[in-house]
Design a protein around this nucleic acid. Structure first.
Lengths: 197, 197
DNA sequence: CGGTTAGTTGACCGATCAGTCAACAGCGGA
DNA sequence: TCCGCTGTTGACTGATCGGTCAACTAACCG
């Protein structure tokens, strides 16, 4: 029952936050939707912000699963990137179907909000973004080894480019309520992986 | 006195929102900081969201001035893009110096938040993002005419790419509290303007 | 069986929230 | 001179906010 309740609270909180900010969701909303009393919420979480941290971690778990699957090495490295973009877009589409509006990036938008809520919150956000970036940089390094990306390209720099681009497309997708926008990341990232001339 | 008060309210609200969300700022905060009473605020604005709309419009005015200056035709089109990126980065740096934390894009982050606050708010956000994009697409078209960008590149598509990339970098800059991140947009956008092969 | 502990309840707190209102000040035009 | 309008005041509302608390329950352990 215990683990169950905690997870239900986090799941509900994630759904309510979904595309809005944590600030826009109240603990009472969360409790009502989770069928739980305030005391229970504060039994598991020291503060609203701690709940926010758990939501962020929850979203990372989801994203992490998608990353692991998409970046599996049954495909050449650049094809894995494409597969990830497809999965990411599918995820946003699913969320839009479920909630009515397109969310931004489940990591990025929360990361941006938490960045100013104290140093540990920012550190958590940065940690997750770096972990995400690592999937890109690993694949890019491998692509360099295979000659599919020029050897003059720095993998870390290029990975940052790709991550930023995806974040930006997700933000536009949210603003325009059109998850399909992120699909162009496949083409765009190819361009970003070329050597500067 | 009238116009004066209204503008002071909007300016203060923008400062308080600055990098956070509108939801995180209360009307009482705004009134206190502006030295104004609640009644005055609601004399000028029908609701908190209307105030948010005015803040967004205010940010657009600021951004618009930067765009006009940066995209002036005393430079070749691609150099104008570089100049804009520099100005944009400088703007973020100034705001960080003033408020202690790096804001996201003054348009993008608010646009994303307002997107789910009803159709008119979303329409306003989209309108401003499109207006911004138009500066890019005009410059890109001109660059195509000068042979600096391949004729096979679609100006609208490429402009969306550039805008998305800048939004993404601004989001990362906010998360990492490092305005300098957006400077790499100069290199990145050059890559994005190449013809896909 | 008794005791311990994690989990749950529901009432409750003071603060704050967005928004309202009637009264009033000042000024420009008739 | 007085009217009417814009802007301003400050007190006020009912709801809701994040968070607390003491009491209760139930499951597990010895």
């Amino acid at each position: 029952m215990a683990r169950d309740t905690r997870e239900r609270i986090v799941a509900v909180a994630r759904d309510l936050v979904h595309g809005a900010s944590l600030a826009a969701v109240s603990t009472e909303d969360v409790c009502r939707a989770a069928g739980v009393h305030k005391g229970s919420l504060y039994h598991f979480f020291a503060s609203k912000q701690a709940l926010g941290g758990a939501v962020l971690e929850h979203n990372w778990a989801m994203m992490s699963a998608v990353l692991e699957e998409a970046f599996a090495d049954d495909l050449p490295p650049l094809a894995r990137v494409d597969r990830f973009v497809d999965s990411f877009a599918r995820m946003l589409t699913l969320m839009r179907d479920r909630f009515g509006t397109t969310p931004g990036c489940p990591l990025g938008s929360l990361a941006a909000e938490f960045a100013m809520h104290g140093d540990d919150a920012r550190a958590q956000a940065i940690r997750l973004l770096q972990a995400w970036k690592a999937y890109f940089s690993t694949a890019i390094s491998e692509a360099k080894g295979r000659g599919e990306v020029a050897s003059t390209v720095d993998a870390e720099t290029a990975a940052t480019r790709a991550l930023a681009h995806l974040q930006g497309l997700a933000l536009l997708a949210k603003a325009m309520d059109d998850p399909g926008l992120v699909l162009q990341a496949k083409t765009d990232i190819r361009l970003l992986l070329q050597a500067p001339r």
